[in-house]
């Protein structure tokens, strides 16, 4: 390695302490989401030092795995979610992932994407960005993409999505430092994400959503993902309807006002 790398600000792995299963008290919770077979478990292992078995096939992880790491002066709890292609339909693994991002309220959601199949991976990314505003895109398998003659303008991608994008080759450990740095920045709020919101072209649908969002905001003024919830209600999602009735939704507003004073503006 180039000796200059060690002193460079980007080289942060000496600030990383892998805590394995020690997650006793943590400052921030980080969720690891993404399509199946994009290397989530590899990223998980690289950060926590755990040796969760990884496998080269979609559907390998169907339960949540948890681990911890410390970076800078902060302790992080990392939750590896099952890989899914979307958050819309209702298989159990998609529900586990969706419920965690929604109700578990992670401080940062790391979306692991396969650089060789970016378009498909963006489908999930855009859906996640409707639920949470604090996310980092880990553009994994960048080495494989390069081998296939694919290059990705990660800065342009970051501008388009409104969240940090970190090119990675997690199997080789490349990009782990940069990912840690971005997780830290988003968690502490020194990087403010402005995630792209998918606009509805259908006017009728948009009006219906607006109506419901107004009502939801009258109930919970600081709810961060009201229009996503409105869409789910329009679709008749039983789980979300139940969450409104039993008070789980009102839980989501806890502490929200402090972290995001600009919340009203997003929905102007």
């Amino acid at each position: 390695m180039n000796p200059n790398c060690e002193s460079c600000a980007v080289h942060n792995s000496n600030h990383l302490r892998r805590l394995g299963l020690d997650m006793g008290s943590f400052d921030y919770m980080v969720a690891l989401a993404g399509n199946p077979n994009t290397g989530k478990s590899t990223v998980f292992n690289a950060l926590t030092g755990l040796k969760q078995h990884t496998g080269n096939w979609p559907g390998k992880t169907v339960t949540r795995a948890e681990g911890g790491f410390a970076y800078g002066d902060k302790r992080f709890k990392l939750v590896d979610l099952p890989g899914t292609y979307s958050l819309l339909s209702t298989s159990v693994d998609e529900e586990v992932a969706r419920d965690f991002i929604l109700f578990g309220r992670p401080d940062v959601t790391v979306i692991v994407a396969d650089a060789t199949r970016l378009e498909r991976n963006l489908n999930l990314t855009l859906q996640i960005l409707k639920i949470t505003r604090r996310a980092v895109l880990a553009l994994n398998l960048i080495d494989e993409a390069r081998r296939h003659g694919v290059s990705i303008d990660d800065r342009a991608l970051s501008r388009e999505l409104g969240i940090p994008v970190v090119p990675m080759a997690a199997r080789q450990g490349d990009g782990v430092d940069a990912l840690l740095k971005m997780i830290h920045e988003v968690a502490t709020g020194s990087y403010v994400c402005r995630p792209r919101q998918v606009k509805n072209k259908n006017r009728k649908l948009e009006r219906a959503v607006q109506k419901l969002v107004e009502q939801i905001h009258a109930l919970y003024p600081v709810l961060p993902n009201a229009d996503w919830l409105a869409l789910r209600l329009l679709e008749g999602d039983e789980r979300i309807i139940g969450a409104f009735r039993n008070g789980t939704i009102s839980e989501l507003t806890r502490g929200e006002a402090l972290q995001t004073p600009a919340v009203e503006k997003v929905y102007e």
């Binding site: 819309l88 963006l122 694919v150 290059s151 303008d153 991608l157 388009e160 998918v198």
Partner: peptide, 25 residues
Amino acid sequence: IHDQLLKNIYEQAADISDKVVRHDG
């Protein structure tokens, strides 16, 4: 709605991907 939402998302994903991905051919 379900299909419309999906279509919306797919279009945007394709749009973004066109802007940032280069193949060397």
